[in-house]
Amino acid sequence: MAREVQITFDAADPGALAAFWADTLGYEVQGPPGDFESWDQALEAMGVPPENRNDASAVIDPAGSGPRLFFQRVPEGKQAKNRVHLDVRTAPGLTGDERMAALEAEADRLVGRGASRLARHEPAPPLNAGHLVLADPEGNEFCLD
């Protein structure tokens, strides 16, 4: 039986990191439960104090096919290179200069949203089509592929 997967990120600012990844993936921030109009209303009703209302956030695929991403506040910052990372499929089906131009355009957009550029790997056919390595606003590495 296949299992549903959630990808969890440790974060200093779960709300901001969730907003970055929602924009990056075309996801949306998961709405509040029940009939609440906002998360602040829901958390107030649950008795969550204001200082803990950014302890967690989540984003979901509006089409319902991609995994949920969950962001949880932790006290420590990122310590080392990720052992697992996301590949954001930005240029499927494109090759060569056209592919790298599409990757560069998306990298420029994401840098404007707080990402950092880390590396560019040129195409080396037949096994490497070329990709860019970036880091999200909290330093988590990911690839534009």
Rank of each mutant, 00 (worst) to 15 (best):
M1D: 05
A2S: 14
Q6N: 13
Q6G: 08
Q6T: 13
T8Y: 01
T8A: 05
F9N: 10
D10T: 11
D10I: 05
P14K: 11
L17V: 13
A18Q: 14
A19H: 08
T24D: 06
T24A: 15
L25M: 07
G31L: 01
P33G: 15
P33I: 12
G34Q: 14
D35L: 11
F36G: 05
S38D: 14
W39R: 10
D40K: 12
Q41E: 15
Q41M: 11
A42S: 14
E44F: 05
A45F: 09
G47P: 06
V48I: 15
P49Q: 08
P49Y: 11
P50E: 15
E51D: 12
N52I: 00
N54M: 07
N54I: 10
N54R: 10
N54L: 08
S57L: 11
S57C: 15
V59D: 08
D61Q: 14
S65T: 13
R68T: 15
F70K: 10
Q72D: 07
Q72T: 14
G77Q: 08
G77M: 01
K78E: 02
A80G: 09
A80P: 06
K81L: 06
N82G: 02
N82A: 12
R83F: 07
R83Y: 03
V84T: 04
V84R: 00
H85N: 02
V88M: 01
T90A: 06
A91P: 02
L94T: 00
L94Y: 00
D97K: 06
E98S: 03
L103R: 01
L103T: 01
E104P: 00
E106G: 02
A107E: 06
A107D: 05
D108R: 14
D108P: 02
R109W: 01
G114M: 05
A115D: 07
S116C: 02
A119R: 15
R120H: 12
H121L: 08
H121Y: 15
E122D: 15
P123C: 09
P123Y: 14
A124T: 05
P125G: 10
P126V: 12
N128D: 11
A129M: 09
A129D: 15
A129L: 13
L134W: 09
A135N: 04
D136S: 04
P137G: 04
E138N: 08
E138G: 09
G139V: 02
N140W: 03
N140M: 03
F142H: 04
C143K: 04
C143V: 04
D145Y: 10
